[in-house]
Design a protein around this nucleic acid. Structure first.
Lengths: 350, 350
DNA sequence: CTGAAAGCGCTTACAG
DNA sequence: CTGAAAGCGCTTACAG
């Protein structure tokens, strides 16, 4: 229970309106007085009351824009749940969401959707940025317009943003490596890495983290090859089928991205071969495969929390000016058949 | 943005005070009018505004009492962090916490501390109940006084409570079993189970869940024996040392509770033997052992979230009357060396 | 540049 | 049993 704006006004001998102007960097205030008020606020340890603020702000409703490559990508179903959870929690305070989704990664499409959100008057944005110069310069523009931006699930270098909310791909690759190491026991493992695309930073980081751990601790894990499936199930199935033929001793698969179902189809057909398979995330595609034991383990990254936190942090920033940490990193979790049912839950996990 | 109490008052042709009385079950209102107001509120889908409520309540500060066997038990350090996080979040609304801790499980001590909290005038309680009749009747008394209670980390049967916040011990035992199954590969595993006490329900459930999975899926995991270490490191070390001597083929340890460090000391001394060790939680004791690879994996249960949610749910109930689910179950996570650094974070994960 | 007033949605005494 | 008023901490027009 901290002091109120009224108390500070009394101490400074000014009106509450003036204190409000000083504290919230509003225009039209004598700089001297402003300094004095800020000093007093600091001395008494003023912290604005969230509830008061929410009520006061109620006339000017806030809208946040979200853009993500969610079409045909089940991973984002969970992200969306988190977005909606936060939206519901702050609906009281006048918050609403506007969500645009696209299929795959098109810079033009992303720009078009972001511009449309901007035109509709959103007060802040969360999106999954494509790592390309046009997106970067768009973000420069947003910064000049004082629109706070959170990069979601995937980050972009050298572009201004409030913060990044997502997982640490290198760390999740390390977890995958450590896990496969444990699964190997002391037997040699001949591993094929299937990645989505060597153009995608996150996929590469998952390979790097994996390789680091294998090199440090598990020399008997041997990497046969790294192949790209473009997140495509058909291609994935083909690649794995070929690999099974080509390397008779192939006994482990590390899948950094999509196309998991396809890869598993090929493995299932080779009924006589038993492979350890490590993948990422818990989706409609991976879940039954984990359930049946074909995928040995999958590494998840709290998609729901990613959505929830992105909205919460933007909202808090707009409400309070509170600065989030530069990177809000979700822990990654190892999923095996026995605890599948427990999907990460809200809890405002906070 | 739902309708306000003012709007309902207008629709019902009464004052806001009367609407407040109807909606919050306050005494002194004509039952007919009350029914009518409730009907209208229902029709328009009234949901009270949290911020408004927090402000309105600000004169009457809320205090919640917490009681737990935290002394000398590192697990509860993380729970406490969660408690404090929630306390900080709702300090605005006048919430404060009163925390009592004890060492071990004494019914008398627990009752004494709960009574002291009650005498100090707490509005709600969260505690780790000992599963004994005197605690049960104490909870009956609390219910009659309309003090909401949340059982934390451990539940108690046949006693009234608002809800249970904690993990599902059987489920975490299943996860342990599934994990050890994967670690075994296709080799036989001669496993010793060391449990805290056969008197503790949670420990037994961890054994049951483990055994279920082993029976269903991993017949080559053989359970040599189940022994009690009373969560004591000395005794634990002794037991494991003896077991290593007695069973030359012992190659796996499943530790359901405390005394992990002691067990590991005995294993480390037997430098020629390599055991798979599965334990629970990430504490000061287990962390370095996971780090060095002596413990293969540990299963954690989001202690911080447990603390956070217990307070949040009590607070919401007192604020809103919002009923939490009967059991709020934390997911359990498999921890291995490679993702130790990522301890579960607030995020109001929720 | 500054203050006084009205209002956000709710609760709590206080009259009647 | 019911209503009118004051107040929680803040913001936003509106005067000056």
């Amino acid at each position: 229970m901290s002091v109120s704006i009224r108390e500070i006004a009394r101490l400074a001998g000014v009106s509450r309106g003036t204190v409000d102007r000083a504290l919230n960097n509003r225009p039209g205030i004598n700089p001297q007085i402003k300094q004095q008020i800020l000093r007093i606020a600091d001395e008494v340890g003023y912290r604005s009351n969230r509830a008061g603020r929410m009520l006061g702000l109620r006339k000017k409703p806030l809208t946040l824009g979200v853009q993500m490559p969610a079409d045909g990508n089940d991973f984002f179903l969970d992200v969306s749940e988190g977005l909606e959870e936060a939206a519901a929690e702050f609906a009281d305070a006048g918050l609403s969401l506007r969500i645009e989704t696209m299929k795959g990664y098109s810079v033009e499409r992303q720009l078009a959707q972001l511009n449309s959100l901007l035109a509709s008057g959103v007060n802040g944005l969360a999106f999954v940025p494509i790592d390309q110069p046009p997106i970067r310069s768009f973000m420069q523009k947003l910064a000049r317009q004082d629109i706070p931006v959170i990069t979601l699930n995937s980050d972009i270098a050298d572009a201004p943003r409030l913060c990044y909310v997502g997982n640490d791909y290198t760390a999740s690759g390390r977890t995958a490596g450590g896990l496969l190491g444990l699964l190997a026991g002391d037997r040699p493992l001949e591993t094929l890495i299937i990645t989505g695309s060597v153009q995608v930073l996150g996929h590469n980081q998952r390979i790097r983290g994996f390789s680091q751990v294998v090199r440090e601790h598990y020399p008997h894990i041997h990497i046969l090859d790294i192949q790209e499936n473009q997140d495509d199930d058909q291609l994935s199935e083909q690649l794995v089928a070929d690999a099974l033929r080509r390397w008779p001793r192939l006994n482990a698969l590390y899948l950094t991205a999509g196309g998991v179902a396809g890869a598993c189809r090929a493995v299932r057909r080779a009924a006589d071969r038993r492979l350890k398979i490590v993948s990422f995330d818990q989706t409609r595609a991976t879940e039954p495969l984990l359930q049946e034991g074909l995928i040995t383990a999958s590494i998840s990254q709290e998609p729901r929390q990613q959505g929830y936190q992105a909205i919460r942090l933007l909202f808090d920033y707009l409400l309070d000016g509170s600065q989030p940490p530069e990177r809000v990193i979700m822990p990654n979790h190892i999923l095996i058949r026995e605890h599948l049912s427990h999907r990460p839950d809200s809890g405002n996990r906070g």
